[in-house]
Simulated assay, not measured.
Amino acid sequence: MFLKSIHLRQFRNYQDQKVEFTAAKTILVGNNAQGKSNLLEAVELLATLRSHRMARDRDLVQEGEAIAQINASLERKSSISDLTLTLRRNGRRTVALNSEIVRRQMDFLGVLNAVEFSSLDLDLVRGGPEGRRSWLDTLLIQLEPVYAHILQQYNQVLRQRNAFLKQTQDSALSSQQSEQLAVWDAQLATNGTRVIRRRERALQRLAPIATNWHASISGSTEELQIKYAPNVPLGENYPQEVQQAFLEKIQQRAIAELRQGTTLVGPHRDEVELIINQTPARQYGSQGQQRTLVLALKLAELQLIEEVVGEPPLLLLDDVLAELDLYRQNQLLDTIQDRFQTIITTTHLGSFDSQWLNSSQILLVKAGEISLPNPLD
C-alpha cells in the first residue's frame, strides 16, 4: 500500500497543509516541536483511530478552532481510497471513506495499515503493563478490525461496573443490588473472554516472528520469549472455559472489589511478559539490549501485518534512529529498503548514507509548515 497524499486542517499545529508523497521513503527534517511527530500521529490515527501519544480529541484540534480534519489518499493493490477523519473539540468524531460517512468504525479500520516506532516505545520494556496492553491492542485492531468494537464493549461494561462498585463501596448489598452486580459480572465475563482469546491468539502468531528477529539482531547471543499472562486463567482457551474461570475469579475477589470499589478481575489487568535468557527484560541488561527487543517487536509487527493483510504496511519512524546505535540503525534500514513505505522524522540527516538520501523524498518542517529544501542549501 502507498500513501499518496495527506491533507491536515486545523490539526495540532497545522492550519492547512497538504503533502504529496513521491518516494517509498520520506524524511521529515526539522528542529524539535515543529510538527514532525504531529504528521506521523495523523497517519497513525487514520490507521488505528488511536493516538500513540494517548491524546484526547480536543488536544488534537488547533487552539481556537471547533474541528480538525485529516484527509488522505491511499493506493492499494486493488483500489484507491480516500479517507477522512473529522475531530471535534466538543463532540463525536466522524469518519468517511470515499466521501461516504462510515457509521461503524470497524468498517473504516483496516483500509490503511501502519506501524509506528518512536522513542516512546522504549517504555514497552521499562514501563508498566498498561503500555504493553495498549501496544498489543493497537496491533490487534489492525489484524482484526472487529477487535476495536470488542474492546470498546468491554471497556464500556468495565466503566459501568466500576461506577456501580464505587457507588456501593463499603456497604452491604441489597438483593436488588446483588442481582444488578450479577448482570455486570456476566457481561464483563462475556466481553472479557473475547478480548482475552484474541490477545492470546495474536501473541501466539507474533512471538515466534519476534524471537527470530531478536536472534538475528543479537547474533543469536540472546533468546527472547514473549508470554501472555492473562489476569484470568486460560485453561484450554475454549470460550466457555475462560468465561467460567472469569466468573469464578470474580467470586473469589468479590469482597475485595466491594471494599476497594473497583474491578480487580479481567483483561484490563493482563500482562505481556518479555523475557530475555530466562530473565524479565525490564530487569535485564543494558538499554541497548532493551532497544534490540523493541526493534525486534516492531519488525515482527510489520511482518505479521503484511502476512495477514497481504500488503506491506506503512512504517512510521519518529525520531527513533537517534535512539539506536549504528548497528541497530543499519539492521532497521537494511530491512526497510523499499519494501515498506516509510516516513521518518529526524532533526538532522547525519544518520543516513548518501544512497538512502538520494532515494528519499526530503521535506523540511518548520512551525507547522512543510516545504521542499532549498537546492542551494
Rank of each mutant, 00 (worst) to 15 (best):
P230G: 06
M54L: 13
L317T: 07
N237Q: 14
L120Q: 12
Q341H: 06
E236Q: 14
Q303Y: 00
S360I: 05
T262Q: 05
Q278A: 11
D338S: 11
F340C: 08
A66C: 01
V157N: 05
G30N: 12
L3C: 06
G266N: 14
E200Q: 15
A68P: 05
M1P: 04
T138K: 15
T345W: 01
A300P: 00
L120C: 00
R89A: 11
Q260I: 00
Q283R: 15
L264G: 09
E144G: 00
D82I: 06
L274M: 12
I255R: 04
T190E: 15
L332I: 07
I370N: 10
E63L: 15
V195G: 10
D353G: 06
N98Y: 09
P208T: 11
R282W: 09
V365A: 11
Y228A: 04
V61S: 12
K36S: 08
G35T: 06
D82F: 05
L326V: 12
L258T: 06
A163I: 14
L122N: 06
T221L: 02
Q329P: 02
Q251H: 09
N231Q: 10
P230Q: 03
L140G: 07
H7A: 04
Q176F: 08
D270I: 05
H7N: 10
S81P: 00
Q169K: 15
Q252P: 00
I276R: 00
E41F: 12
Q160L: 14
L316C: 04
I250F: 13
E323I: 14
A72I: 06
